[in-house]
Design a protein around this nucleic acid. Sequence first.
DNA 1: TTCTTTCTAACAATCGTTGCAGATTAGCGC
DNA 2: GCGCTAATCTGCAACGATTGTTAGAAAGAA
Lengths: 145, 145
Amino acid sequence: MTAVKSPAELTELFREQGLKVTPQRQCIFRALDGNLEHPTAESIYDRVTAEMPTVSLRTVYQTLNDLAAMGEISQIDLGTGSSRFDPNLDDHHHLVCDSCGTVFDVPGDFAAISVPRGHTHGFSVSRTEIVFRGVCADCRERGRS
Amino acid sequence: MTAVKSPAELTELFREQGLKVTPQRQCIFRALDGNLEHPTAESIYDRVTAEMPTVSLRTVYQTLNDLAAMGEISQIDLGTGSSRFDPNLDDHHHLVCDSCGTVFDVPGDFAAISVPRGHTHGFSVSRTEIVFRGVCADCRERGRS
DNA sequence: TTCTTTCTAACAATCGTTGCAGATTAGCGC
DNA sequence: GCGCTAATCTGCAACGATTGTTAGAAAGAA
């Protein structure tokens, strides 16, 4: 499993790129480390401010964007209103609950899937994203009662 | 091909549902009829105001939402910043240009695709959306020069 | 026509995200 | 350690997309 690099590795990487390693950024690195959710900027912000109350939301966005630009996390839009940042760098897809918005990973590369001949419109396709939508067990339970 | 119903059919349908058929709504029906793009609310608004300059954007959103709720068009979010409304009701997927945001349809039902055993998390999956991302012919051309 | 109910237009508000300006600070060379 | 300088941080304003509100207009039934 290719998760996000450790805070130490990210620190190293930032320095290599000539970027400064501030306490705020390190705190964000820590918030991402081992994070198996699909955090929004807001949820990272919550984690970070619990430890460093003065960090601004602006800084969180800035750092997440930087990490995404470097390819250390990926940014996904699942139509839940806000972007999510995915520390899981494996080839994988998503399962989204229409009711509560929860997101689960679906491993597997589905390499066989490609645009049918005659419909490529001259595109060079670089990524294939699959989103399975439905209702999660919890919400189904809740709806039934 | 299952495109959006004709303005006359939608008019009928609205009346059946007890909804009023106003000139504004009819104008929106016309803007959707035979529309092969993946219009945003804004682009429908542009078409509509060309004919009826006083229609408000609010009304366009309202009517498009109503149509989507009735299943007469589908609402898709491809991460381009705003929702798109798709009058194509066939089972199909999308090809999105990362550079200019253009969207093309990709027919085919890819019925074979499903969440691998052991990763369903108890979901009942109702839809599977596939998005192919890449760069379209025009943008590739433009980038090369 | 008249009445009832829905719809529209205009405006304000909200949400997620980014631009900006001035204060702060990491990391360099000394 | 010290100071310098460019990068970064914060707080706030701005922005685009969308929705809430409400008074007035108009569709459709009687």
